[in-house]
Write a protein that binds this DNA or RNA. Sequence first.
DNA 1: ATGGTAGAGGATCTA
Length: 257
Amino acid sequence: MKIATWNVNSLKVRLPHVIDWLNNHQPDILCLQETKLIDDHFPLHDINALGYHCLFNGQKTYNGVAILSKLAGNDRILDIPQFSDEQKRVISATYGDLRVVCVYVPNGESVESAKYQYKLQWLTALKQWLQQELIRYEQLIVLGDFNIAPEDRDVYDPDAWRDKVLCSQPERDALNDLIGLGLKDSFRLFEQPEKSYTWWDYRMMAFRLNRGLRIDHILISDVLTKHCSACSIDKQPRKLERPSDHAPVIVEFKIKE
DNA sequence: ATGGTAGAGGATCTA
């Protein structure tokens, strides 16, 4: 079983890349962030034509998340329950015995910004909700754009990024709090190349110079860890014309469900 | 040097 996450930065612009990627990789599940589409404009038929079901939670201009899957999803939940938020950043559903939570964590803008406080509050709400979900679902996977680089080795220039947004200690603490609920960063279960990143700024030739950050993650519950066989970043789509600024992250499991 | 690029939408806001 193969599950992936990809911040596409506009599904309208990136639809050809997503279609090619689905055809080439045949993931069982692909979670998308920054679809930037209202639900009425979701390209449902194009994706259905590839044999994938779609669940989505979109809005105009910003944010927006979706889950594409070979199996139909059950028990769909939109957003974080009991957390009032106009921004569409979460969708979750069950596939077989697997509970999938697709997240687009707020960027935060800068540590001085009000958006940074929103980000930390949002992460607290996510933690409180996931604590309950982990009781309900033994096989839980939480994946998406977390907008947090967990450690200095996940940053191309740690000194330049020290205490900056995406790297600050409160953000890293918040991510570690999620992991502390009983989740693991699947990427770090395996030996990985040095300087592995998932996002590169469009500016200053950042991708060509591999000036990136690893901010997209796949967190899995302990039961899933036992069956997890690989986790990797696919840099290939970042090399295409008009790419997303993020690369997909893929996790694989030996179990079939 | 406080820039630069991309997307949405139609002037800025967000990342």
